[in-house]
Design a protein around this nucleic acid. Structure first.
Lengths: 149, 149
DNA sequence: CATATAAACCCATAATATCCCATATAGGGA
DNA sequence: TCCCTATATGGGATATTATGGGTTTATATG
């Protein structure tokens, strides 16, 4: 599980340390890297374990081969996904596209989201989270959950 | 699995490097090459492991002999399929038909699609992908997958 | 068979990614 | 408090990848 937030530094080779707790969760699952893709809805990059992407692939693969959605989803998700492997120090190197999408410069914010985590340019995340907090306040009662939580 | 996109160069002998990550997935499956055929819905070439084509052949073979789809599939896919082997540097040489179908000139874009990948002329892919992204946004909720994601 | 044509092999190089080691920093425990 | 360990960071060394082009081998065709 990925929780908490960490701010790390992007070096001039484009590398950044993945927070140790996030990394250890992924290595426990048997992966020496992580899969990521630009968010559809905001300026973050979404990170998840390879198994999650594999499930998405299965789902897409089970669609009718000539269904239009098939191409739409695989192109918009899989084509923009990247497999980033950890180096011996637990860092990943970000591609130009990932840097562009988030606008990160020197500081990189990692934000735990349970089964996934995100990467943000710190000030962009602040904007986003202030906004989210406002919305949560007004809609608190709408968050329902089932009995066995 | 095939994810991400890579832009490589077609040399004057008609060779192009298959992205290393795609190649290593195929060699892991025991293949020193890849099977491809022109898409019949767009301007890309579809690439997949030999095992996938074998599965398609099975499927076609199980169709009713008088089913119209039988001829359609076998003619449009199998007749136009090519086995392309990697040279010692991991390149394949494209046939004239493959080049024609895509319209590639100097740059070749490889696009991961999970269990397959595609080859595009870069500007054609951009057109296609812009369109796909628009549609994905409006139909995101239609992609359903099972509980344990 | 001989030859034209295309395919595969081999080597060289530049760019990039990865490894490896060195240092800094913070937190925990004796 | 002080040391030990884990983590984060910086940068040189090494390996991998993509690309170009010459040479050899295979294939087809008359």
């Amino acid at each position: 599980m990925f929780i908490s937030t960490f701010e790390n530094k992007l070096d001039k080779k484009g590398r950044v340390s993945v927070p140790a707790t996030f990394r250890s969760h992924l290595t426990n699952l048997g992966y020496n890297g992580v899969v990521c893709y630009p968010s559809f809805t905001n300026l973050s990059i979404e990170f998840c374990a390879q198994s999650r992407i594999e499930k998405i692939i299965e789902t897409i693969d089970n669609l009718n081969p000539f269904e239009e959605n098939r191409d739409i989803f695989s192109t918009s998700i899989l084509a923009n996904s990247h497999q980033l492997n950890f180096d011996t120090e637990g860092r990943v190197t970000l591609t130009e596209k990932l840097i562009e999408h988030t606008g990160v410069k020197e500081k990189v914010l990692f934000v735990g989201q349970g089964k996934t985590f995100q990467m943000w340019e710190p000030s962009q995340f602040k904007k986003f989270s202030d906004e989210a907090r406002k919305k949560a306040k007004s809609q608190r009662s709408n968050l329902k959950w089932n009995q066995n939580n």
